[in-house]
C-alpha cells in the first residue's frame, strides 16, 4: 500500500513540479494552482486518522512522499504542511487550508513583534506554525512583512509580524508539549535533503557520462569517479538517516531520531552540492542549466531549523548524561529501527 501512495505522489510531482514550474514560482508566480492540485490529491491529510478523511498512515509510511518532494524540489511546504496538520490535530486545533511552514527554532517575540528568520518556504506559505519559546501559534503570513532572504530564485523569506497577528491561532502550551516543532522541522528537512541529494546525484551521473574532455567522458577519469562515489555514499547515507528520522509507529518523529536525521543530512547536503558543482564545472553555475534548482535547496535546508552541530550536540548531550550507557547500547536503544 505504501508503494501505491509513494508512486502516485511521485507521478504527481513529476507532472506539476517541473523545472519550468519551479522557475515560474521562484520568479513570483502564484502557487495557488500547484497547491490546489496537491490539496486535491488528498495526500496532505495522509497522517490524519481515517475518521477525518485522512489516510491513517504513520510517519514511516509517508517518508517516501517526503523524499519525492525533495527529489522534485517541490516549491511549496508539502512535508511541513502534512506534519503541521497532524500536529495541530493532535493539539486539538482544526488545521486551516493552505500551505504551512514550521518554525521550530529561533522565532523571536519581543515587545509585540514576532520574527521568523530565513524560513525556506517563507515566500510560499499561508501560515507559519511557530514556536516562540514554548508559546506556540499559527501565524498568517498575509499579516507579515516579508524580506527575501536567500538570493535570486530562493523561496526563503524572513517574516516579521509587527504586532501579535490578529488572525493567529494560539495553541495551549499543554496540548503541544509532547512533540516539539523543532523535531517536526528537523525530520521534514532531513527527508527533503535526502530526496534532493538523489536528484543531484542523478544529474551529476548523467553529466559525467555525457560530457567529454581529453577525448573521453569525464566519468572515465579516476578523480571524477572518486568524487561521484563519495557523493553516492553520502546520498545513500542521507537517505538512511532521513528514514531513521521518519521512523515512527505514529505520525510524529522521535526527538533523538529526528536529531540524527537532520545532523547527518545537513552535514551531507553541503558536500553533495559542492561535489555536484565541481563535477559539472562552469555549466552548473549557470541559471539556465538548473542544477541550482536543487543545490540551492540543499544548502538552505542544511542550515535551516538547526544545522549539523546543533543537532549532533543534542544527541551528544543525551549520551554524555547517561552514566552507564555505552555508545553501542545507546545506538541500539535510541537510534535504530527498533527504537521507534
Amino acid at each position: 500500500m505504501d508503494t501505491l501512495y509513494a508512486d502516485s505522489v511521485e507521478r504527481l510531482f513529476s507532472q506539476i513540479s517541473t523545472p519550468a514550474s519551479i522557475r515560474a514560482i521562484e520568479s513570483g508566480q502564484s502557487t495557488d494552482a500547484m497547491w490546489k492540485e496537491i490539496e486535491q490529491s488528498g495526500f496532505l491529510d495522509a497522517l490524519l486518522p481515517e475518521s477525518l478523511e485522512g489516510a491513517g498512515l504513520n510517519l514511516a509510511q509517508v517518508f517516501p512522499m517526503f523524499l519525492s518532494a525533495g527529489r522534485y524540489a517541490v516549491p511549496v511546504p508539502f512535508a511541513q504542511t502534512m506534519l503541521a496538520r497532524a500536529w495541530l490535530f493532535a493539539a486539538g486545533v482544526t488545521p486551516p487550508k493552505g500551505p504551512i511552514s514550521i518554525a521550530g527554532l529561533g522565532v523571536r517575540a519581543d515587545k509585540g513583534t514576532v520574527d521568523a528568520d530565513a524560513l525556506p518556504f517563507g515566500r510560499v506559505s499561508a501560515w507559519v506554525l511557530a514556536d516562540m519559546g514554548g508559546d506556540i501559534a499559527l501565524l498568517p503570513t498575509a499579516e507579515a512583512s516579508s524580506l527575501f532572504s536567500g538570493g535570486p530564485g530562493s523561496l526563503s523569506a524572513s517574516l516579521q509580524w509587527i504586532t501579535r497577528p490578529g488572525a493567529g491561532i494560539a495553541i495551549a502550551a499543554s496540548k503541544s508539549a509532547r512533540v516539539g516543532l523543532d523535531q517536526l522541522a528537523a525530520a521534514s528537512y532531513a527527508a527533503l535533503i535526502a530526496g534532493a541529494a538523489e536528484r543531484v546525484l542523478a544529474m551529476t551521473l548523467d553529466y559525467a557520462n555525457q560530457r567529454k574532455q581529453f577525448g573521453k567522458p569525464i566519468g572515465k577519469f579516476q578523480a571524477i569517479q572518486n568524487q561521484i562515489s563519495v557523493m553516492a555514499e553520502r546520498t545513500w547515507a542521507s537517505r538512511m538517516a532521513a528514514e531513521l528520522a521518519c521512523r515512527s509507529a505514529d505520525w510524529s518523529p522521535r526527538f533523538l531520531m529526528a536529531a540524527l536525521g537532520k545532523a547527518r543530512c545537513s552535514e551531507a547536503a553541503g558536500l553533495i552540492a559542492d561535489m555536484a558543482h565541481a563535477v559539472h564545472g562552469a555549466i552548473g553555475v549557470t541559471d539556465e542549466y538548473g542544477l541550482h534548482l536543487y543545490t540551492r535547496r540543499l544548502r538552505e535546508w542544511r542550515l535551516c531549523a538547526g544545522a549539523e552541530s546543533y543537532w549532533a550536540s543534542r544527541i551528544g548531550a543525551q549520551l554524555l548524561s547517561q552514566p552507564e550507557t555505552t555508545a553501542l547500547a545507546f545506538i541500539c536503544e535510541e537510534l535504530s529501527a527498533q527504537a521507534a
Partner: peptide, 26 residues
C-alpha cells in the same frame, strides 16, 4: 568534560555510527 566541542563530537560520531549501522543491518 562536557564543553560544547565535546558534546558536539560525541553526538557527531554516534549519529554517524548509527546511520552506518542501519545501512549494515540493511
Amino acid at each position: 568534560t562536557n564543553d560544547a566541542r565535546t558534546i558536539e563530537t560525541v553526538g557527531k560520531v554516534v549519529s554517524w555510527l548509527a546511520v552506518l549501522r542501519a545501512m549494515s543491518i540493511s
